[in-house]
Deep mutational scan, measured.
Amino acid sequence: EETVVIALYDYQTNDPQELALRRNEEYCLLDSSEIHWWRVQDRNGHEGYVPSSYLVEKS
């Protein structure tokens, strides 16, 4: 079962390993094994790492 997370803030990045976030957008959580950086996928299928503190699990 996939976990959906919501971005609390915008996040901009130039790092190809990371993914930009848009506030209030939903993302699919792929990997939360790292404490500070979670791997997520956006609705267009793009994947990357984002700061975990910018996300909240959708209830």
Rank of each mutant, 00 (worst) to 15 (best):
S59M: 12
H46L: 11
C28Q: 08
S32V: 06
H46P: 03
L29S: 02
A20L: 08
H36K: 15
Q12S: 13
S53A: 07
R22M: 14
E25S: 08
H46T: 11
V5Y: 11
E26C: 06
V4M: 09
H36L: 08
Y11E: 00
R39S: 05
E1R: 03
E1N: 05
G45S: 05
V56I: 12
C28T: 13
L8C: 08
L29K: 05
R22C: 10
E18A: 12
L21C: 04
Y9C: 09
D31L: 02
D31Y: 02
N44K: 11
V50K: 00
W37Y: 12
R22A: 12
V56E: 12
V40H: 02
A20D: 12
Y11H: 10
A7Q: 02
S52R: 14
D42W: 01
L55G: 00
H36M: 06
P51Y: 01
Q17E: 14
N14G: 09
T3R: 13
E26F: 05
Y27K: 00
H46K: 12
S59L: 05
E34L: 13
V4D: 07
E2C: 05
S53F: 04
N14P: 07
N14A: 10
E2L: 10
L55M: 09
I35M: 14
E18L: 06
Q12E: 14
D42T: 05
V5P: 01
Q41P: 01
L55E: 01
E1Y: 12
D42V: 01
K58I: 07
S52F: 03
W38I: 02
E2V: 09
W37Q: 14
K58V: 11
V50Y: 00
V5F: 11
R43G: 12
L29H: 02
E47V: 10
V50G: 04
R22E: 14
K58P: 11
E57I: 10
R39A: 04
Y49P: 03
V56W: 06
S53Y: 05
S53G: 11
C28R: 12
I35H: 14
E34F: 10
Y9P: 01
R43I: 06
D10K: 02
T3M: 11
I6F: 05
G48K: 01
L19P: 03
V5W: 10
T13H: 07
